[in-house]
C-alpha cells in the first residue's frame, strides 16, 4: 500500500473495480436464489469483505489518526501487546502494522527504558490535510458534505426535541471557556460539541456515525479554522445552533447547520482551487 493511496481522502478510487466485482458476485448469487429476484440488500450480503489483511486495517486506522492529527507528532502509541488487545488482533498482526507505519515514516521506534513507538516529528496534519484536499474531487467533497449534513441534521433535530436546556447550557459553558484564536483547542472543542449534540439525540447509531464523520472531516475543518474570518462565522453559527436546540426549534437548528456546512465546503473548494493548494499537490511525493 503506497502512502498516498491510504491517505484519508474522500475519492472513491477503486470504485470501478468494486462495481465489476459486485456485478459478478450478484450474477452468481442471483442464479442461486430460489425466490428469483435478489434485492439490492441481498446483493450487499455477499459483497467481498475485502482482501486487505487485518494488519493493513490496523495500519490504516492508525495512519488515518496520524494524518488527521488525532495522534499528534511525538505521541506515544500503546505497546504492541496493548494495541493487539484493543484491536482484537494477534500480536504478530499489530507488529506487522507498526512495521508498515515505520516504513512509511509515520512513526519512529526508540529503544530503551523510555522507548516505544512514537508519531514521527514530521507528521504535520495541515500538510496531510492540504494534500488530501488536493486529491479529493469536487464531487467527492460535495458528497462527503451531503453525508455529513444528513447525519448532523438528523442529530440536531432529535436533540432539539429531546435535550434538556440544562444539558445545552453545560456544552455552552465548555465552549465559552475556549477562545477561538487558540486554534487547536477551538478545533477540539468544536468537534466535541458536535459529538455531544449528536449524543443528545439519544441515538447510539447516529452518534457513532457522527463520530466517524467528524473524525473524517475534522482535518478539513481545521484548514477552514486557519481563516480567522471563517472561524468567527463558525463560532457564531455554533452558538446560534445551541440556542435553537435549547429552545427546541428543530427547523431553525437544521437551517443553521445547513448554512454552516455549505459555507465550509465552499471555502474548502476555493482553497483547493487556489494556486497555493495545487502547488502543494505538485510537490507531494
Amino acid at each position: 500500500m503506497t502512502e498516498s493511496s491510504s491517505l484519508r481522502t474522500a475519492s472513491p478510487r477503486s470504485a470501478p473495480h468494486a462495481d465489476r466485482a459486485d456485478r459478478a458476485e450478484n450474477d452468481r448469487v442471483s442464479s442461486a436464489t430460489r425466490s428469483g429476484r435478489p434485492t439490492r440488500l441481498h446483493r450487499a450480503v455477499f459483497q467481498p469483505i475485502g482482501d486487505a489483511g487485518r494488519a493493513a486495517l490496523v495500519e490504516r486506522r492508525i495512519a488515518d489518526a496520524i494524518t488527521a492529527g488525532v495522534l499528534p507528532s511525538g505521541e506515544r502509541l500503546p505497546a504492541e501487546t496493548e494495541l493487539a488487545r484493543s484491536f482484537g488482533v494477534a500480536p504478530a498482526t499489530a507488529r506487522e502494522a507498526l512495521l508498515a507505519l515505520r516504513e512509511r515514516g509515520l512513526i519512529v521506534t526508540r529503544r530503551g527504558r523510555n522507548g516505544g513507538s512514537f508519531v514521527s516529528d514530521d507528521a504535520d496534519p495541515t500538510a496531510f490535510a492540504l494534500r488530501a484536499l488536493a486529491e479529493t474531487s469536487r464531487v467527492a467533497l460535495r458528497d462527503l458534505a451531503a453525508h455529513y449534513l444528513a447525519i448532523t441534521n438528523a442529530c440536531v433535530e432529535l436533540a432539539a426535541r429531546r435535550a434538556d436546556p440544562s444539558e445545552i447550557a453545560a456544552i455552552r459553558t465548555r465552549l465559552d471557556r475556549v477562545r477561538d484564536d487558540e486554534v487547536a483547542a477551538w478545533r477540539r472543542v468544536t468537534d466535541d460539541t458536535q459529538i455531544e449534540l449528536a449524543a443528545l439525540s439519544q441515538s447510539a447509531r447516529l452518534t457513532r456515525e457522527q463520530m466517524r464523520l467528524q473524525g473524517e472531516l475534522s482535518p478539513f475543518f481545521a484548514l477552514v479554522d486557519t481563516d480567522a474570518h471563517a472561524r468567527l462565522a463558525n463560532r457564531a453559527a455554533l452558538l446560534a445552533l445551541l440556542d435553537a436546540v435549547a429552545e427546541g426549534d428543530e427547523a431553525r437548528a437544521g437551517s443553521i447547520i445547513r448554512h454552516k456546512i455549505h459555507r465550509c465546503v465552499d471555502w474548502l473548494i476555493d482553497l483547493r482551487e487556489s494556486p497555493t493548494a495545487s502547488h502543494s499537490e505538485r510537490t507531494s511525493p
Binding site: 489518526a65 495522534l71 500503546p78 494495541l83 482484537g88 468537534d191 459529538i195 463520530m211 473524525g215
Partner: peptide
C-alpha cells in the same frame, strides 16, 4: 476487553 481509548477513530483520550 480492556478499554484502550487511544486506538479509536476520534481521540477519546482528549475527551
Amino acid at each position: 476487553a480492556k478499554l484502550v481509548l487511544a486506538s479509536q477513530s476520534v481521540n477519546k483520550e482528549l475527551i
